[in-house]
Amino acid sequence: MSVYHRQPTSASYRHVVPMLILLGVTIYLAACTMAPIKVDSPVIVPTLLSTPTPPDTDATWRLIASGVEIRQIEAPGLPVQIVRIDPTQVRFVVAYDPTKPRTLQAWAVQYGAVAAINGGFFDQYGEPVALLISDQRVIGTSYVDQGGMFAIDAQGRPHLWSLAEQPYDGKPFAQAIQGWPLLVRRQGEAAYTVADDQRARRSAIALDQAGRVLLIVAPGASFSLAEWSQFLATVDLAIEVAVNLDGGSSSGLIAQGHQGGVRVDPFVPLPFALLILPL
């Protein structure tokens, strides 16, 4: 019968093992204590131009350039963006090129504009479906008994009126665009009341009671035309008269200055645009 004999463990080995274990634990704890803790870099999310303004600053106009102020107003979906223009401190140009439509930003850069908005409706060839005047050149045919007309006379003064109340008689203007429908008539009354559920991006041009020009865009598909008309007639912008411009994918508004700006890009290139240039 064989007998199994366990090998004796030396005293030195018995002492070394615990010491090695203790040393390893000590080194590990020291490494954990001294190693820098990795913190992920913060992710910066770009602020959208349409980010809502806090209620206490909602009515604040911000001057960004000579004669140019911006503001946004809470509305269903995205806030409505407004640029208010003092016509005595700027000049207006209707840029037009149906053969080479451009982004609104490209139009603004080409002319050195401080603000820009899309114009009225156009066809598949880039031609206006109503009247347009660019540097005294008349293109297209005026709306009859509908819509409105924004025009700049030879002295640089803005005019905006209902074409149903005052048809265009061929009077020469330096610049002009027409839109449809009229949204706000004199005395601040909503001018379009045909109800429908077709909501889209909207753009408009208006004159306020002080004679300033308002460029207005709703960047979200939040309003039907009747709702857009009612909104502009009741919002605290002191609008005297307003007309709708080409909405949907054409809606765009840009204003840029030393104190910030606003940018709502159209989804399509534009054959013409209304530009506001510094004097």
Rank of each mutant, 00 (worst) to 15 (best):
residue 83 V to W: 03
residue 65 A to N: 10
residue 274 L to G: 04
residue 88 T to A: 13
residue 251 S to H: 04
residue 163 L to S: 01
residue 266 P to L: 10
residue 56 D to Q: 15
residue 59 A to T: 13
residue 217 V to F: 07
residue 243 V to T: 15
residue 199 R to F: 02
residue 192 Y to C: 03
residue 161 W to N: 02
residue 221 A to G: 09
residue 268 V to S: 11
residue 156 G to E: 03
residue 67 G to I: 06
residue 200 A to I: 06
residue 63 L to E: 12
residue 201 R to I: 01
residue 75 A to W: 05
residue 224 S to H: 02
residue 261 G to K: 07
residue 185 R to Q: 15
residue 64 I to S: 11
residue 56 D to N: 15
residue 62 R to A: 09
residue 70 I to V: 15
residue 116 A to M: 08
residue 67 G to C: 10
residue 232 L to W: 03
residue 50 S to P: 05
residue 85 I to A: 09
residue 159 H to E: 10
residue 204 A to L: 12
residue 89 Q to R: 15
residue 224 S to E: 03
residue 32 C to M: 13
residue 72 Q to A: 08
residue 39 V to M: 13
residue 146 Q to W: 00
residue 21 I to S: 11
residue 211 G to L: 02
residue 204 A to V: 12
residue 198 Q to H: 12
residue 101 P to A: 08
residue 258 H to W: 02
residue 264 V to D: 09
residue 154 A to I: 07
residue 266 P to W: 09
residue 126 G to V: 11
residue 168 Y to F: 15
residue 87 P to G: 02
residue 21 I to Q: 02
residue 146 Q to L: 06
residue 61 W to D: 03
residue 247 G to F: 11
residue 176 A to M: 06
residue 35 A to W: 01
residue 151 A to M: 05
residue 228 W to A: 00
residue 91 R to K: 15
residue 47 T to R: 14
residue 152 I to C: 10
residue 70 I to S: 07
residue 231 F to Y: 15
residue 197 D to R: 12
residue 57 T to M: 14
residue 254 I to K: 01
residue 140 G to N: 08
residue 266 P to A: 14
residue 110 Q to G: 07
residue 111 Y to R: 13
residue 259 Q to P: 00
residue 34 M to C: 02
residue 18 P to F: 08
residue 4 Y to R: 13
residue 124 Q to E: 14
residue 42 P to E: 08
residue 182 L to T: 07
residue 219 P to K: 10
residue 120 G to D: 03
residue 157 R to P: 00
